[in-house]
Nucleic acid binder design. Structure first.
Lengths: 215, 215
DNA sequence: TGTACATCAGTGAACGCGCGTTCACTGATGTAC
DNA sequence: TGTACATCAGTGAACGCGCGTTCACTGATGTAC
């Protein structure tokens, strides 16, 4: 931040245009869905000709990949930031909900319907693991009053996704249900499945969170 | 079934071609995603020319709408069928999982990332209510050992989505968490979010179901 | 049973569109002496 | 400080593609007498 800017003006310009392209890309995704992402359309909105963007992104797929990676990075930073500020599981859940509501399309780019054929880059696996690590940490500090389930026994032997994490199976189990339950409420809400029903999804989210904290 | 066939041969032929078009449509959705659905591509695979299909569907959107409606109808029938066979909540959950795994794209067509701009027809609201009614029936037969939550109080006043159903708020609450929890596990699983982790999602699903039945 | 007519399935040409991407090019910006 | 050169941003034309959709037409299927 305060470090001397080692970037040349041209590098800074490039970074700025790339950022602007991405901003338009998100706008376009919000308007017409991720599958409608189009370099030509973005160029037009930026007042440039289509091929110009190929100076900044090698292909449509590269842009798409970068948007996905950015989305993961953003969620991981939000999580890490909350944890570093002393947030417990409730704090993480709150941060997650805020992040999701801030930009539902970004949430769906990560957790939504997968596009057949498209393969996410290796980076996101690393970032996803980072997110999971924060979640595991938060789950590890909670007492567990649950009887051992077949899933716990299974997880004792299937836990390489929590590699390096010394949590017992009950904590892994806890992390999985936190993830799936919060995602369950959030994804239904963001997808508009609660639209016709007029109850407040925030209360359902809170109730699920309370339940997770209590048991 | 055993009733005399009142359809003319032409009507039967039409119905058969429409069904064949839909079958190819599902194949295409599975291969390239719902947004890649194309009348021309379907026609080509059927050995017909593109415009021919306009005898059977007024537009691409009409086909899309019909696929969505069929998906809802299929799930509602599965649910209703299970309930009529005496299935309890566990049976419904099992039926849901089977239905989802049978064709993940069909599941996502209903519960996946919404396509901005696309508006589902009114029929699906009715069918969705039918599904919810079955779920509410199953939840009503279970004893509830939960303390009253803010959500319950809220639901006492926001329950027109369960109109005609004499269930107390606790049952509505129960139905919502059954829905969101099962969807949470299923959607993460079908989207491949558990892919890298090698545990068995069926056990997580079963654990969540046990938890729902126990509390 | 046979003929005359209406219905309807499917074709091929055509329209306009937008897409991703390549390529040779112009003109501006930065670098080296 | 000024000139010569290299770098790089952006353009416009072009390629091939597939899309949804309309339209005038052919040929087969079914219906009425």
């Amino acid at each position: 931040m305060a470090a001397p800017d080692t970037k040349t003006p041209r590098e800074r310009y490039r970074a700025q245009v790339r950022a602007e392209v991405k901003a338009h890309a998100w706008e376009q995704i919000a308007t017409a869905g991720a599958s409608a992402l189009s370099l030509n359309a973005i160029a037009k909105r930026m007042g440039m000709s289509g091929p110009a963007l190929y100076r900044y992104f090698a292909s449509r797929d590269e842009l798409m990949t970068e948007l996905i990676t950015d989305a993961y990075r953003s969620l991981a930073d939000t999580f890490r930031g909350a944890a570093d500020s002393g947030a417990d599981l409730a704090g993480l859940a709150h941060a997650l909900r805020g992040w999701a509501l801030e930009d539902p399309h970004r949430y769906f780019l990560i957790y939504g319907t997968p596009v057949p054929g498209y393969h996410a880059p290796g980076d996101v696996t690393t970032i996803a693991a980072e997110i999971m690590a924060v979640l595991l940490d938060a789950c590890a500090t909670l007492p567990s009053h649950r009887p051992e389930s077949p899933l716990d026994i299974h997880l004792a032997d299937h836990r390489q996704w929590a590699e390096g994490h010394p949590a017992p199976p009950a904590v892994l189990h806890r992390a999985l249900i936190v993830w799936s339950r919060l995602h369950g409420v959030l994804s239904l809400e963001l997808a508009g499945q609660f639209a016709g029903m007029d109850f407040d999804p925030a209360l359902l989210y809170a109730a699920e969170l309370d339940d997770l904290l209590a048991h």
